[in-house]
Design a protein around this nucleic acid. Structure first.
Length: 595
RNA sequence: GGUGGCAUAGCUCAGCUGGAUAGAGCACCUGCCUUCUAAGCAGGCGGUCCUAGGUUCGAAUCCUAGUGCCAUCACCA
């Protein structure tokens, strides 16, 4: 039973016996650092039921609790706040209970209630950039957090492998490529294909300029540039299954997938299931037809099918073109349903997609509800803010993107420079150092992107790069490494960790604070899962680490002469490092033995 | 114009269902490495919580209106 539950019951009993009044609820908060105590009962809300002076009420309740509740060892009242001192033995007991749990804070997966988390879902015409990194890290992390909160999770992505965008790259390659391949150029496949996407845009713009010079109106030129018409023709050929086009499409997408795989591997993300738009883009029409029959949709005179969402404060939205072809929405309806067919235990989905598509998902979810799917109640758009540069939006066609691979390499290089400057790694081999540099560089990047509330936009300044000090990934990794160093020394000096921790020991305030912070790890995971927010985990781990560093700097751990006290401190350090590790695992960040 | 999101220290961000004197990091200034890793610790400086009303014993937090920035409102994806 949690301490809050115990206290709530007792406070109610106290109110009954002292004031003969029934409290509907009791409000707690952690006691502020500048007051004595651990848990604070807020008296003000009780005034609705108990008439009187809040300070006096606080005093009376405090005295009662101190006498009647074993866990309460003291109290003081400031204004309407009753600060309770919780006994050391309570915290020690708690710590004893968790110190040997390898999965502290994590909830075992329950068989039912699977949830699919979609993230990444790139187009196949260009390499991944910083925006994709945020998407991938968020999706991956939320998936891990949901798992840790007890859900079964399938990670999925839908690869946008067809459409005009890839035809543009294909056409440009055909025209200007001279048979180039990743092998012949030494370029990563996604980079190579991306280059042709840019080449297409360049040629396209030149044609427009030429046409305008020849007196064609811009509006017309934009639509009728020959190279664009040719790309559209290519798309039609693709749709009819033209052998040559399909084979080129397969070849170039194959290059891209290989490139993506490498990027994903470096980023440390993975998927349980891959969907390809080329397989799913025709899905959904049947359900539109069905919904039409049932009056969910309606048909306009020109044959196009719509849904009227004006009652919900939204607009009318098209779900099928007049020529009977699917729009994006049609596909998304079909794909959602397909996923539940593929995984019947799914009861909910999370879509990690930028906030520019907020409206789309609002509509999609509403449609699925109106179509009557039970799981439609459990859909969530994990909407996140854009990553912008000081110069504004990233635009791949204009070359103003921060490339994902380049950025990871840069971060690793920065970590190496810093590390070499500090020179603490004599014992490491060359290979071990490389692994560490990457771990720290990526740790900095991942933490930087994940510690911010997902819905806020991030301004990324490549000039200033990412910090390695303060509230950063490396700071936390460093703390972890320091603890590992202590644990190694404890082992070398034969500190017997099996020595039982006794409730008779008096806790140092720093020890107590650490235990309090450990205590809220499980609820933090649940909160982060409920809010789909890795930022909550990041902030929690940061607070824990700050608390630990203060502890570490102020009191001696291995130098402690009282053996029992020493064991407690080593145990505490060990547990803190384990929680750092599991917290960081939820963010997809690794932790080092040394740094 | 309609809709949605955001606005907190010079900069980057926390602030859970309303609670005490609004917290961190960076930057700047002071101290601390013969003692467990100084990527650290301790302290200082720094605030009209966008503005104006309202609800409340109590508002950065909730409500209304306004301002600014961003997104969105296509038979595009």
């Amino acid at each position: 039973m949690s301490i809050h539950t115990i206290l709530e019951t007792k406070v109610k009993v106290a109110a009954r016996s002292i004031f003969d009044a029934e409290l509907p609820s009791v409000e707690f908060q952690p006691t502020r650092k500048d007051f004595e105590g651990d848990i604070t009962v807020v008296v003000f809300p009780m005034l609705r039921v108990l008439k009187g002076n809040p300070v006096q009420i606080g005093e009376q309740l405090g005295a009662y609790l101190k006498d009647e509740v074993a866990e309460v060892s003291g109290y003081n009242v400031v204004k309407g706040f009753l600060n309770l001192v919780i006994s050391d033995s309570f915290y020690l007991d708690f710590f004893n209970g968790i110190k040997d749990l390898s999965d502290f804070g994590l909830v075992k997966e329950s068989a039912k209630d699977a949830i699919m988390v979609e993230y990444s879902s790139p187009n196949t015409n260009k390499p991944l950039h910083l925006g994709h990194i945020r998407n991938n890290l968020l999706g991956y992390s939320v998936a891990e957090i949901l798992k840790a909160s007890g859900k079964k999770v399938y990670k999925a992505q839908i690869i946008n492998d067809r459409g005009i965008h890839i035809c543009k790259s294909m056409l440009a390659w055909q025209r200007f490529g001279n048979g180039e391949t990743p092998e012949s150029t030494g370029l990563k496949g996604d980079k190579l294909v991306g280059n042709y996407y840019v080449a297409f845009d360049k040629a396209y713009k030149e044609e427009i300029a030429q046409m305008m010079a020849d007196g064609v109106e811009e509006k017309v030129a934009v639509k009728e540039a020959p190279i664009l018409l040719e790309a559209q023709e290519m798309l039609q050929k693709w749709e009819t299954g033209d052998k040559e086009v399909v084979s080129l499409w397969k070849k170039m997408n194959g290059w891209v997938y290989k490139g993506f795989e490498e990027t994903y591997k470096n980023m440390g993300v993975d998927f349980d299931k891959l969907y390809y738009e080329s397989n799913t883009y025709l899905l959904g029409k049947d359900f539109v037809a069905d919904g039409l029959k049932r009056g969910v949709f309606y048909k306009k005179d020109d044959g196009s099918v719509w849904i009227d969402l004006t009652d919900e404060g939204l607009d009318e939205k098209i779900v099928l073109r007049s020529d009977g072809t699917a729009v994006y929405m049609t596909q998304d309806i079909g794909t959602a349903i397909q996923r539940v067919k593929d995984y019947p235990d799914i009861n909910g989905m999370v879509y990690t997609v930028g906030n520019e598509q907020d409206y789309h998902f609002k509509v999609l979810f509403l449609i699925l509800k109106k179509l009557g799917f039970s799981w439609a109640e459990q859909l969530h758009h994990l909407s996140y803010g854009m990553v912008d540069l000081p110069s504004g939006k990233m635009k791949s066609r204009e070359g103003t993107v921060v490339d994902a691979d380049d950025l990871m390499v840069d971060m690793t290089a920065t970590a190496r420079e810093l590390s070499e400057e500090l020179g603490k790694l004599e014992e490491y081999s060359h290979e071990e150092k490389q692994v560490l540099y990457k771990m720290v560089g990526l740790g900095a990047l991942k933490y930087y992107l994940l510690k911010v509330d997902p819905k806020k936009r991030i301004l990324f300044n490549p000039e200033e790069s990412v910090d390695f000090q303060g509230n950063t990934g490396p700071f936390i990794q460093y703390t972890y490494a320091r603890i590992q160093s202590i644990l190694r020394k404890a082992k070398d000096t034969n500190v017997d960790l099996s020595t039982p921790l006794e409730a008779t020991e008096e806790l140092h305030p720093k020890e107590k604070e650490l235990i309090k912070q450990l205590q809220i790890f499980p609820e933090t995971i649940q909160l982060a899962a409920a809010h789909y927010s890795p930022a909550l985990i990041a902030n929690y781990v940061y607070d824990l680490v700050k608390e630990f560093n203060s502890f570490y700097q102020q009191i001696s751990i291995l130098g402690e002469t009282n053996e029992k006290q020493k064991v407690l401190r080593v145990q505490l350090s060990k547990k803190v490092s384990e929680v750092i590790e599991s917290g960081f695992r939820l963010l997809g960040i690794d932790v080092p033995e040394r740094m």
